[in-house]
Design a protein around this nucleic acid. Structure first.
Lengths: 178, 178
DNA sequence: GCAATCCCTACTGGATTAATAGACTTTCGG
DNA sequence: CCGAAAGTCTATTAATCCAGTAGGGATTGC
């Protein structure tokens, strides 16, 4: 029941992009993402390319370039991302909605294993197909603020935010200290 | 989120053993199990050995030997079997109960991915740690009888059951036709 | 004793995973 | 217009895991 590193890294990167966007700094470079999440940069690059091809992120090329979300975070469901990178959510193909494939059992309708695994696949999908990137970002930010933890990817600090908190959300000033 | 073939085959075999036991014929040979489920016999043998070592099945050796459940089907939870063969249920190690391992993210308490994956792991475990082999067997048998489908592993038929249905459950007579 | 069964150990081919490498293209600032 | 800094593209790879295959050994029933 494993999530691959590809999916994990993709989701981490997307969450970071979502956070950054929310904080008014939508464009992030691979190097920043890799540094924040401690990921191999070239591997992450490949993954981001995959996300770009699939339409989840877009890029600005050249110097000062980077990656940014290509669609509203509310419209990015985690399940779709995982399916893109890892294949079906279902534990066995005969209970997959997106990639059904018959298994070897003689009678699907009376296969006990299938019944249970169908429940499992539905339980997984109920979460991953409902939760949007926006929700994850929102909860993450709320928790970080509540606990007064430094928020990453806030606007570049020039030392002013700490003195003149012109941003609506006062806690983002914390992030400037990074 | 894949179940390995090992786990799949193990569960199929256990369900079959449970059904057979329920029908008064607890001992099954690898060859029977392999035939019923269309599995490579030698591979299944390995898996059954693993189940034996872990105490889920026991064997009778020698001619007319075979495998049988070593404990009550009510006490065999699917989650345990899968953990034995595939490792933790959790999609990522940092949300595993049975094999927790820290991940690379800097702050677990504020990791959005972790929050979601914790929900997923709980959803999976809620099913697989609650459902017992006995329940799967019961539902399977009920469905097969309701739909008047041949029930496998009934007592050896000598052609008498169809004429003299001495078994409590009349539908098991159907199985004799196999 | 012999045939059928489980037991044990080793191996293996293929696929997948998680990267790594490097040359190429685009863009910005000066 | 040049060069540095970014993303793009393609290839390679080392390691691991998966799913099986193989074959001889031990045990038991008839």
């Amino acid at each position: 029941m494993n999530l691959s590193k590809r999916s994990e890294y993709a989701l981490r990167a997307l969450i970071d992009l979502g956070i950054a966007k929310e904080l008014g700094r939508p464009l992030l470079q691979v190097s920043e993402l890799a540094a924040k999440e401690q990921l191999p940069i070239k591997f992450l690059e490949q993954i981001l390319t995959q996300l770009r091809v699939a339409g989840y992120v877009d890029t600005k090329r050249g110097k000062l370039g980077g990656y940014f979300l290509a669609k509203a975070a509310t419209r990015i469901k985690l399940g779709k991302i995982i399916r893109l990178l890892d294949g079906p959510l279902a534990p066995i193909p005969c209970v997959s909605q997106s990639a059904y494939h018959r298994c070897t059992c003689p009678d699907e309708a009376h296969c006990g294993l299938r019944m249970v695994m169908l429940d499992v696949r539905n339980a997984i999908a109920r979460i991953l197909d409902r939760v949007s990137l926006a929700q994850v970002v929102e909860i993450t930010l709320r928790k970080m603020r509540r606990d007064k933890v430094a928020v990453p990817f806030a606007r570049q600090s020039f030392g002013l935010e700490e003195i003149v908190p012109f941003l609506k959300d006062t806690t983002t000033g914390e992030a400037a200290k990074r």
